[in-house]
Amino acid sequence: MKRLLEYVGYDPGRFNARWISGSEGQKWADTTKDMTEKLKALGPNKRFSK
């Protein structure tokens, strides 16, 4: 999925998939923080909108 989105011109940071278990609270927090920061920098996605 990620590879397909990058192929059609989405920024590599826009879509991410991570496997996080329910017991990995810290990993969850770090990952979401990291993703949010990257996404803020990219700005809103203008595609898939009306």
Binding site: E6, Y7, V8, G9, Y10, D11, P12, R47
Partner: peptide, 15 residues
């Protein structure tokens, strides 16, 4: 060839 394009070029081409 298409993979090697930049993100902007890809977006432009596919859209």
């Amino acid at each position: 060839k298409y993979e090697a394009m930049s993100t902007e070029e890809k977006a432009k081409f596919w859209l």
